[in-house]
Simulated scan of single mutants.
Amino acid sequence: MKKSIKKGIVAIDLFAGAGGLSRGLQDAGIKILAGIDFDESAKKSYEYNNKAPFITKDIKLLKSDEILELLKGYEDYYFLLCGCAPCQAFSTRNSKQKEVDERRSLLLEFDRLIKETNPDFVFMENVPGIKKREPHVYETFVQTLKDKKYKHDADVVNTKHFEVPQERKRFVLFASKHNNITLPTHVLSNTEVLTVRDTIAHLPALKAGEEHSAIKNHKAINLIDLNIERLKQTPHDGGSRIDWKDEYLTAKCHKGKKGFGNSYGRLSWDKPAPTVTTRFYTYSSGRHGHPEQNRAMSFKEGALLQTFPADYVFFGTNGEKGKQIGNAVPPKMAYHFGRHFLKSVM
């Protein structure tokens, strides 16, 4: 296609949370008009760190007129509608969900807003299981794109190839009304990926239950004595519960079982981290132990592994901050995708 005479791209971020997607796109040069999410607890984190308002609204109640109102004055810009619908309903980890889960309808609400607002571009990010776990929902979404004359590309990518120091696989879809847009495959090769050491080794040491006085969010939650002893018997730099010498340390649910091998494990310094989940700050729920200190990851460490900027500050309870960080689209990956959109038309 011919290069555009339009000024740039503006975006509205659905399911915005604390703003990982918004921040990455903003850093790429895309103007964010608003982040929209029903979770009021993310509002302060979003607005403190991003040059955009946070609109507290359930997407099921969001009217297309509200989006079109935000777009007034930006007629000489392309419009990108983007978001990551809450992914638990589509995750392969979520094997106990009911057959009909209300959260699945959120992707269909995204679909509705595409029909009603006719954006120039669409960016959707979710878990790899979205197509397999609920194919009719995904197929409805794609059929809308076809009916509205979008060209689209979709695939599973690993965030480690986009400067995110995590083994985090995500399903990504791009759609465009203006060109045959394709997904970028990587910006880093397997030999160039960033590691835990690259990302958090510079931070001051903490003890469990301690919070750094000067570095915002560098706080490690307290641990019971049993978990401290478990960490003491876990080798530094990638050790796990299979290394424990004393049998009493093994939880009853793990005795005689080889599964859940990451539980109570330590991060490895010279590898990308495992996926940063919403419970990354708790020691027992994954490979969340610091590589050598006897504690779980701090909130700052989780945020840096998600590639939030060093000055990005999160507000709320421990659980709220964990959700804001763990559920986010990694800003660095969003940055590279944002640059890809801009290069395709500008």
Rank of each mutant, 00 (worst) to 15 (best):
K257L: 15
A28W: 01
I215G: 04
N190P: 15
E125V: 00
F260C: 01
D198Q: 15
I228D: 02
V156T: 01
G316A: 10
D27E: 15
P184V: 09
H336M: 10
P165A: 05
I5S: 10
K169C: 11
A175C: 14
F171E: 00
L342N: 14
E139Y: 04
I59P: 06
M1V: 05
S189D: 13
F141L: 00
S213I: 13
Y46C: 04
T117A: 08
A208R: 06
G338V: 02
F121K: 05
I9A: 12
K2G: 12
N262F: 04
L173V: 04
P309N: 15
K6Q: 12
K72I: 08
V329R: 09
A205D: 03
Y77W: 11
V127L: 02
Y46L: 03
G319R: 11
K57C: 09
E247K: 10
K57R: 14
K219E: 05
T182G: 12
L107E: 00
E320L: 07
V164K: 08
H186Q: 13
R133N: 00
F110I: 00
G239A: 11
P119D: 03
N294P: 07
A34C: 07
R295N: 06
D65A: 09
C87R: 02
H288E: 01
S263Q: 15
R287Q: 09
F123T: 00
R230D: 01
D37L: 14
K132M: 05
G316H: 07
K332F: 06
N180F: 08
K258N: 14
T185P: 00
H288T: 02
H186M: 14
P331Y: 11
T159A: 09
E247W: 10
L106D: 03
S22A: 07
S189I: 01
N118K: 08
K149G: 07
I55S: 08
Y150I: 03
E211F: 07
K149H: 14
A28F: 00
D65F: 10
N94K: 08
V10G: 00
R339I: 05
S285M: 15
P53T: 03
K216A: 11
L145D: 03
L61E: 14
T317P: 00
K98A: 14
P235R: 14
Y78P: 01
I59C: 12
A89W: 04
F341C: 05
K51T: 08
A205P: 03
R266D: 04
M346F: 10
Q324Y: 10
N227P: 07
N318H: 09
E134G: 03
F341D: 06
G24W: 08
C82F: 02
F110A: 04
N158A: 05
K245V: 11
L21H: 10
Y248F: 04
N222S: 12
G238D: 09
A85T: 06
K207Q: 14
K255R: 15
I59V: 09
G239Q: 10
F15R: 05
N180K: 13
V313R: 15
V329Y: 07
I32M: 11
L70V: 03
K60L: 04
I55L: 15
V313Q: 11
K219R: 12
I200W: 07
D76P: 09
D37H: 12
K72F: 13
T317K: 15
K245T: 13
D237F: 01
G19P: 10
K57W: 08
D243V: 04
I200Y: 10
F308V: 03
G238N: 13
A52I: 04
